[in-house]
């Protein structure tokens, strides 16, 4: 991976909530085209780490270089960079007052000054990809959880991001809907999209990732290929964690 392009470079990242230190110094590089899964117990800081990557959480210390630009610099226009960093949330966060189609087109039209027809044509292609083209003019309340999450994924894709962040994308779903969402993420990964995925789906993480990070107590305790991390864990906390979840 040394020749690959560094997409995100995190240096000395710390995040405190008041007195509580959630991230205690993380140095990590995400390369272009990589699929990185982040695992760890609840409260370990893995979601906070992910949310720092697009500054939904403001880092307390450290720098984050995205495509070579320090996005922790207060002077950068973070909105412009966020357009290149797609994010998918646990609770979907689709816009309930907009139709499925408008959910996808609103940001490209507003922020990229894309023509309405062009944005809608593109959105329809995306909806066809996830099999929701027939729901284009429905409101999200008519969709199932799995459909909402697939919509949220293509809403982010419509901005043509260079990386996709997934924050426990299947944790709020009914079990029978997990697969349809994971299929979409898998397809993206196979098409070469850089993905950073915080997940509790260990089998999925093992199958899809190039690299797995184990975050515990605010630091990356172990990092490596899925085989190394899942089959030959070294860190005792990771061994303990895996014994509970596998």
């Amino acid at each position: 991976m040394t020749n690959a392009m560094k997409l995100i470079e995190v240096k000395g990242l710390k995040k405190n909530f008041g007195e509580l230190g959630v991230l205690k110094g993380i140095d990590e590089v995400i390369y272009k085209g990589e699929v990185v899964s982040i695992i760890g117990a609840s409260g370990s800081g893995k979601s906070t780490f992910l949310r720092c990557l697009n500054r939904l959480e403001e880092p307390s210390e450290g720098t984050i270089l995205f495509e070579g630009v320090d996005i922790t610099d207060k002077k950068v226009n973070i909105d412009k960079h966020r357009q290149k960093i797609g994010m998918v949330f646990q609770h979907f966060n689709v816009f309930p007052h907009l139709t499925v189609l408008d959910n996808i087109t609103i940001t490209p039209i507003l922020e990229k000054k894309m023509k309405k027809e062009e944005a809608e044509a593109k959105a329809m292609t995306l909806l066809e990809m996830i099999g929701l083209a027939d729901k284009a003019h429905e409101f999200p309340r008519k969709l199932s959880g799995g459909q909402k999450q697939r919509l949220a994924i293509v809403r982010a894709l419509a901005m043509e991001p260079d990386v996709m962040l997934f924050d426990e994308p299947t944790s709020a779903l009914d079990p029978e809907m997990v697969k349809e969402v994971l299929e979409v993420i898998k397809k993206l990964a196979e098409e070469g999209m850089t993905c950073v995925i915080v997940t509790h789906e260990m089998a999925f993480a093992k199958q899809i990732s190039n690299r797995v990070l184990f975050i515990d107590e605010g630091i990356v305790k172990e990092s490596g290929s899925p085989e190394d991390v899942f089959d030959h864990p070294k860190d005792p906390r990771l061994v303990e964690f895996l014994s509970k979840v596998l």
Partner: peptide, 20 residues
């Protein structure tokens, strides 16, 4: 979550307030 979704898409504060 609505605010976070709009922010993560790169929406400006103004558009987020008015449209979302």
């Amino acid at each position: 979550g609505q605010k976070e979704a709009a922010k993560s898409l790169g929406m400006s504060d103004r558009n987020m307030m008015i449209k979302i």
